[in-house]
């Protein structure tokens, strides 16, 4: 078989072409369209083909945008913190305590909820936390409360709770993978050099696990900030996040240039935060390579 460099290149490119073209047509081209729209003028039901930065100026000057963006960042940040903090001990348990033969069973158990319908999981939290919901009716029938607690649903806390639950398995896997990569003899070396168990964890395990923690944080943070369903259901539509705002601009108000500018701005902010976050952890990320 001819396997010179040129043929290699050509065969590889021929093979990658269908999925690549698909991604270009169905994802990259629409994204670029959005970017293009964001620089055009809105002319009520039509789009005027004229370059302008007005949309971005409007987005940045809009106090509602500030409020919603900050709320989205706050919710996503909190969710990330809670999720990663709760997930770390589980990942540690999986990697260091679980019998290797049972590891894939544990992983399977943890990933199953992740693959069940996201919508149903979010909706279940509404059922659980609602005014006539599971928690309230349960507490009432146990005689603990007389009136239903109204603070359970339709607020930021309940959104954080729901999202933390929905994204829990996302956080475990990257941390678990990072922990699995740690050479076990390093830990023994730490102990051998006179460190206590806790100090070994602090000085050896945790720094080596940081790449996984960073990956987990991003994997939770990015989709959370773009979440649409939870604000709509758990927030009762009254505490929108950025996704709801984009949708409303784009479809309800049919202002595509404005909605596009909003989407692009939000994406840039998320990208910038992710990059800053990764840069802050560069020292740890280097360990991986």
């Amino acid at each position: 078989m001819a396997t010179g460099n040129q043929t290699q290149d050509r065969q590889g490119l021929t093979l990658i072409a269908p999925p690549f073209l698909y991604a270009v047509l169905v994802m990259a081209a629409p994204l670029l369209t959005i970017v293009a729209y964001s620089f055009l003028k809105d002319g009520y039901l039509t789009v005027i083909r004229e370059f302008t930065l007005e949309n971005y100026r409007a987005v940045w000057a809009d106090p509602i945008f500030h409020k919603i963006m900050l709320r989205s960042l706050g919710v996503a940040g909190l969710v990330t913190l809670v999720t990663v903090a709760l997930a770390f001990p589980v990942a540690y348990f999986l990697s260091f305590v679980v019998d290797p033969r049972k590891k894939s069973m544990w992983l399977f158990l943890i990933t199953i909820p992740f693959w069940t319908s996201y919508l149903i999981r979010v909706f279940l939290w509404k059922v659980i936390l609602g005014y006539n919901g599971v928690v309230n009716s349960g507490l009432k029938s146990l005689g603990i409360i007389e009136q239903p607690l109204s603070f359970l649903l339709y607020n930021v806390n309940s959104m954080v709770m729901t999202l933390a639950h929905a994204y829990a398995p996302f956080a475990i896997l990257p941390i678990y993978i990072a922990l699995e990569k740690i050479d076990r003899s390093l830990l023994e070396a730490g102990r051998d050099l006179g460190e206590s168990r806790a100090m070994t964890f602090w000085r050896v395990t945790l720094p080596l696990a940081m790449p996984g923690v960073v990956a987990a944080s991003l994997i939770v943070f990015i989709p959370t900030i773009g979440d649409y369903v939870t604000p709509a259901l758990i927030g009762g539509g009254k505490i929108p996040m950025i996704a709801n705002m984009i949708q409303s601009q784009m479809l309800d108000q049919d202002n595509r240039p404005m909605g596009s500018a909003l989407a692009v701005t939000a994406m840039l902010i998320v990208a910038a935060i992710s990059l800053i976050f990764m840069a802050m952890n560069r020292r740890f990320l280097k360990v991986r390579q």
Binding site: G12, I16, P19, F20, A23, V24, V26, M27, A28, A29, P30, L31, T33, I34, Y37, L218, I219, I222, P223, I225, G226, D227, Y228, A243, I246, Q247, M250, L251, R256, G259, S260, A263, M267
Partner: peptide, 26 residues
Amino acid sequence: KGPVMGLIMLPLVLPEIIVSISLLVV
């Protein structure tokens, strides 16, 4: 190869709202 594979894997991290809205607009 790197960028091409990156683009193919991008939907994994892109919020679905962005994917669907942009596709919808087009």
